[in-house]
Measured scan of single mutants.
Amino acid sequence: EQLARLKREFNENRYLTERRRQQLSSELGLNEAQIKIWFQNERA
């Protein structure tokens, strides 16, 4: 579920704002660094 949600977010926007990253962190139970790194890896 977390992965599917991250992929949906990535398809909508390849870059997250700090606020959006905080929201996802709270909703998915991941820390902000994990989300940031995931997005960086997807863009690579």
Rank of each mutant, 00 (worst) to 15 (best):
S25K: 04
E18D: 14
N11Y: 12
L30W: 10
W38D: 00
F39E: 03
T17C: 11
K7C: 12
S26D: 11
S25Y: 06
A44P: 03
R14S: 11
N31Q: 11
A4E: 12
L6E: 01
I35Q: 00
E32W: 09
K36E: 15
Q22H: 09
A44W: 11
S25I: 08
L30F: 03
T17K: 05
E9A: 14
Q22K: 15
K7P: 01
A4H: 06
N11T: 09
I37H: 10
Q22S: 09
N31D: 15
I37R: 12
W38K: 02
Y15R: 07
R8I: 10
A33V: 12
R8W: 09
F10H: 02
N13V: 05
L24I: 06
A33C: 15
N31W: 07
K7Y: 08
L28H: 01
N41D: 07
Q2K: 09
K7A: 07
E27F: 05
N41Q: 12
E42T: 05
K7W: 08
L6Q: 01
N13F: 06
Q34S: 10
E42Y: 09
Q23R: 11
F39M: 09
Y15D: 05
E1A: 10
R14Y: 04
L24A: 01
R43S: 09
Q23S: 07
S26V: 15
E32D: 06
E42F: 13
W38M: 03
S25D: 00
W38L: 04
R8V: 07
E42S: 05
R14N: 09
I35V: 07
E9G: 02
Q34G: 01
A33G: 08
T17V: 04
L6Y: 01
T17L: 04
L6N: 01
K7Q: 10
K36F: 12
R19E: 15
L16D: 11
T17E: 03
G29P: 00
K36P: 01
K7I: 10
R14L: 00
A33E: 15
Y15S: 08
S25W: 04
L30E: 00
S25Q: 04
R21W: 13
R14K: 11
Q2P: 03
E9F: 08
L3K: 04
Q23L: 13
Y15K: 07
Q2V: 15
S25N: 01
E32I: 09
R43P: 03
Q40V: 07
N13Q: 03
E32V: 11
S26N: 12
E32H: 03
R8S: 09
Y15M: 08
L6T: 02
R21M: 15
I35E: 00
K36S: 15
Q34Y: 15
R19Q: 14
Q40W: 08
L3N: 05
Q23K: 11
L28D: 00
Q23E: 14
R43C: 10
K36R: 13
T17Q: 03
N41G: 04
R20C: 07
L30Q: 00
L24H: 01
A33S: 12
L24E: 01
A33H: 13
N13K: 06
F39D: 02
R43L: 14
L30C: 09
